[in-house]
Design a protein around this nucleic acid. Structure first.
Length: 476
RNA sequence: GGCGGCGUAGCCAAGCGGCCCAAGGCGAUGGUUUGCAAAACCAUUAUUCGUGGGUUCGAAUCCCACCGCCGCCUCCA
């Protein structure tokens, strides 16, 4: 089935056609490691993860690159002033690279908690200074860039398509007049490829003297190194459209003479309780903070992927609770199928169930193939689960087949993490004690033990037939 | 000023010209089941899609106007 994606570049939903059959080259704008990444950052990373997993579900071999920006993002509007990393470094009196490492680790840990599949490579900007310098040289040689006083700027008037991605024309940008006039630049919209600033803590040698790279060049340089000058798909947050991605296109296409990226996918911002997240509002939650508050990591993942990526997602604690409930519904079904797979009778799979499973996967595929219509896909998933729950007298072959279907779906959703909840021995003991009490019809004792188990953070549930099941409770 | 998005049940959210008296999740209510629970299942929870016009045999879906909300326009995913 064809995958359709909304392409920011053309402002149309298009059928995805890879450069190479069966393969996808994908680049995602990653974090700038000067603070802990928050849920908003992760929504964008999770959309990339969802898309990548869906490509794999459809049988594509994906090469996924996500950069880690550990240098070069300037703080204020005029390409002047302190670098964000440096600002943090000065505040904390640490070396910028130390700061970068600390927050890179924070990012990687949170990514793991959210069950994000690691990209094939997380290239770091500071490890690709040479590649960036090489690209800047090419841009100067080809006449797209010019040197002034140890600084290198890109001349936007030389690139005819500047503004194609964002819809910003040079005239509009002039009218916007938010740009402080920098006398060095030929045009106010020209952006820095290489900057000279003796006050900067991070410095590298270059043909233009000591300095540091401009903040768009790293993605152009690293994407071409790992994916080639021309590749399939580039993802990021909506704020990246302009100027970052617009400038990447200008740099990469000018340097290579080829089309840069075929499909641009941008994730809309997350709101928190209907408001934009910001430090001043104190609503920039990080993943560990939410876990600290008692929310489950897979609920956070579910919440963040459960609405369409081109829609603002309004993040609320109530939404997280709803997400946790929804996952439980799936998990409950998985538990039952797992039990039946072990204890059910041997047998053939009924045709009706075979069709149910096949249709589910087809519809799930169709939903996500429609520009990642996740709501529809989840609806398919829950419809399937209801049908499964309604099915009595299931044999072990059937249970295994249906379980396999859920697992295929979860290879994309990634919310059913392997059950790492080893039930402690004392809890099992208590559960056995309760079972014994129940056999004696000593309901009081049985209920007391159940309360005790709950107090320790676990839930016992009876299964028809006299058995029971132990689940992790809220605080386990 | 320029570019773009949104308004569907208590909440989240799909649908984008007829299959819609509108999917799915959460919540709520009643029922089946259970020692009691939990889970599960069944039923109910929008004859209506921000408001007003229009186009059409037919509109939540297209057009116009109005109201409200939000994002981007060189820090930001």
């Amino acid at each position: 089935m064809d995958l359709k994606l909304y392409n920011t570049l053309t402002r149309k939903t298009e059928i995805f056609e890879p450069l190479q059959k069966g393969r996808v080259g994908m680049y995602s704008c990653g974090p700038t490691v000067y603070s802990h990444p928050h849920i908003g950052n992760f929504r964008s990373f999770l959309v990339a993860d969802l898309l990548k997993r869906f490509f794999e579900f459809k049988g594509f071999k994906v090469t996924h690159i996500m950069n880690i920006t550990d240098v070069g993002h300037l703080v204020d509007d005029a390409d002047e002033g302190a670098d964000k990393l440096e600002e943090t470094a000065r505040k904390q009196k640490k070396d910028p690279l130390e700061i970068a490492k600390f927050y890179t680790d924070s990012f990687l840990q949170a990514s793991k908690l959210l069950n994000i599949k690691p990209p094939d490579k997380y290239p770091k900007a500071t490890e690709h200074i040479k590649e960036m310098i090489d690209m800047v040289k090419i841009l100067i040689d080809k006449g797209y860039a010019y040197v002034v006083e140890n600084n290198v700027y890109y001349d936007v008037t030389k690139f005819a398509n500047y503004g194609q991605l964002s819809g910003n024309t040079l005239n509009d940008l002039n009218a916007g007049a938010r740009i402080e006039i920098n006398q060095e630049k030929k045009n106010p919209q020209d952006f820095a490829l290489w900057k000279h600033d003796p006050k900067h803590l991070q410095q590298w040698d270059s043909p233009w003297g000591k300095g540091f790279p401009g903040w768009h060049i790293e993605c152009s340089a690293m994407s071409s190194k790992y994916l080639g000058a021309e590749f399939d798909i580039h993802t990021g947050g909506e704020d990246n459209i302009f100027p970052h991605h617009e400038c990447e296109i200008a740099q990469s296409e000018a340097a290579s003479g080829k089309k840069f990226v075929h499909y641009w996918l941008h994730t809309r911002f997350l709101l928190f309780d209907g408001e934009k997240m910001s430090k001043s509002k104190g609503n920039l939650y990080t993943i560990p903070e939410l876990i600290e508050k008692g929310f489950r990591k897979n609920a956070i993942r579910y919440a963040l992927i459960s609405s369409h990526y081109r829609q603002n997602y309004n993040f609320t604690f109530d939404g997280l609770k709803a997400a946790a409930q929804a996952i439980d519904k799936i998990q409950q079904c998985v538990l039952r199928l797992t039990d039946l797979g072990k204890t059910g009778k041997q047998g053939e799979i009924r045709e009706q169930l075979q069709d149910l499973a096949a249709n589910c996967l087809t519809e799930f595929d169709a939903a996500l193939s429609d520009d990642l219509n996740i709501s529809k896909a989840l609806a398919v998933c829950f419809d399937f689960i209801r049908q499964v729950n309604k099915t009595d007298d299931m044999n072990s072959t059937e249970a295994a087949a249906l379980l396999d279907t859920i697992n295929k779906i979860d290879s994309v959703l990634g919310v059913l993490e392997a059950d790492d909840n080893e039930v402690p021995a004392n809890i099992i003991e208590l559960a056995e004690k309760r079972k014994a009490a129940k056999l004696n019809k000593d309901w009081k004792a049985a209920d007391a033990v159940r309360a005790e188990i709950l107090a320790q953070g676990w839930i016992v549930e009876d299964i028809p037939g006299g058995g029971y099941r132990i689940k992790r409770g809220e605080n386990a």
